Amino acid sequence: MNYKNITVAGSGVLGSQIAYQIAFKGFNVNVYDINDEVLGKAKDRISDLKQRYQEDLKATEEEVNSAFNRISFYSDLAKATAEADLVIEAIPEVVQIKTDFYKELGKVAPEKTIFASNSSTLLPSQFAEATGRPQKFLNLHFANEIWKNNTAEIMKHPGTDAKVFEDVIDFAKAIGMVALPLQKEQPGYILNSLLVPLLDAAQMLLLNEIADPETIDKTWMVATGAPMGPFAILDVVGITTAYNITLAKAEATGNPDYKKLADLLKSEYIDKGKLGRGTGEGFYKYPNPTFMNPDFIQA
């Protein structure tokens, strides 16, 4: 593995975290997104991570500033990838958006460049042909709050070159991750194969008016000892991401409950600006959500 220059495409919550973590570990990072306005927000989002790294990792001010200074920002994909050894895609979970992106990326990125998708639910084989270099393509999935929840699930497809697979595993370790190789394609990898059914079940309980988000979360936290319930997790993931995933399931399965859930997420949360922790409100209000109160799980 001889990666030095990394491009992260997509500067949302997780894309920003991926970029900063990689820079923190000494790599040069280019962040690509669709326009300068979005990139301006990304700079603020990434800058805010400095404090978290100082609090959670006891990083010094020099370390966090040096990491930020290793990041450059581009709205031109060709410029963003001109020297890239690896491109990590972290754009919305919409098949057509990703397909169009990979067709464009394949045209402008150097021949040497490896492509990796951070997709939470979609398989690399769905996009391998669109990349134009299927042997140099695989999935590399991170968890939110990457500096603490430092899992990296590496999932190849049948056409991924074995050396590419091993190199990306080595890269994951080099940026401070616990590398978790998957030998076969699996929707949701390992983590989301466990997590998504929990989040689905919680949202269906809400949709069917069985209980409110606080009661559902309280149940999970008391019964399992978990520090967060499913709706607190959804606030971290982001409700727009949850909506996109739910809408895709509605289209793929024809299950009307998924369509109803997508409509609920849109009308009651997204349309009201309640997008999750990043916007200050989702299922809970931040920075002091009720599930963090010491008496939340008391009798």
Rank of each mutant, 00 (worst) to 15 (best):
Y3Q: 07
T7E: 06
V8Q: 03
G10L: 00
V13L: 08
S16L: 06
S16Y: 02
A19T: 14
K25V: 06
G26D: 07
G26C: 08
F27W: 01
V29T: 11
Y32N: 10
Y32I: 14
D33I: 13
E37K: 13
V38M: 06
D44M: 04
R45H: 08
Y53T: 11
Y53S: 03
Q54L: 04
D56T: 15
K58Q: 14
E61V: 15
E62L: 15
E63I: 08
E63Y: 03
V64M: 04
N69A: 14
F73T: 09
S75L: 12
A84P: 00
L86C: 08
I88C: 07
I88F: 06
V94Q: 11
V95R: 11
I97T: 15
G106C: 08
K107C: 04
P110M: 00
P110I: 11
A116G: 00
S117I: 09
T121H: 04
L123F: 03
P124E: 00
S125I: 14
S125Y: 05
T131L: 11
P134F: 09
P134D: 05
F142V: 04
T151H: 05
E153F: 02
K156I: 11
K156N: 09
H157L: 06
D167E: 15
V168L: 02
I169D: 02
I175F: 12
A179F: 05
L180V: 10
P181S: 05
L182S: 14
E185T: 07
P187N: 02
S193D: 08
L194Y: 06
P197M: 06
L199N: 07
A202P: 02
E214T: 13
E214R: 15
K218F: 12
T219D: 06
M221Y: 13
M221V: 10
V222F: 05
A223S: 11
G225F: 01
A226R: 06
M228V: 12
G229M: 01
G229E: 03
P230V: 06
P230W: 08
A232R: 01
L234T: 02
T240F: 05
A242G: 14
Y243R: 01
A252Y: 05
T253D: 00
L265N: 03
S267M: 08
Y269D: 03
D271I: 03
E281Q: 08
F283L: 04
Y284P: 12
K285S: 04
P287M: 01
A299C: 13
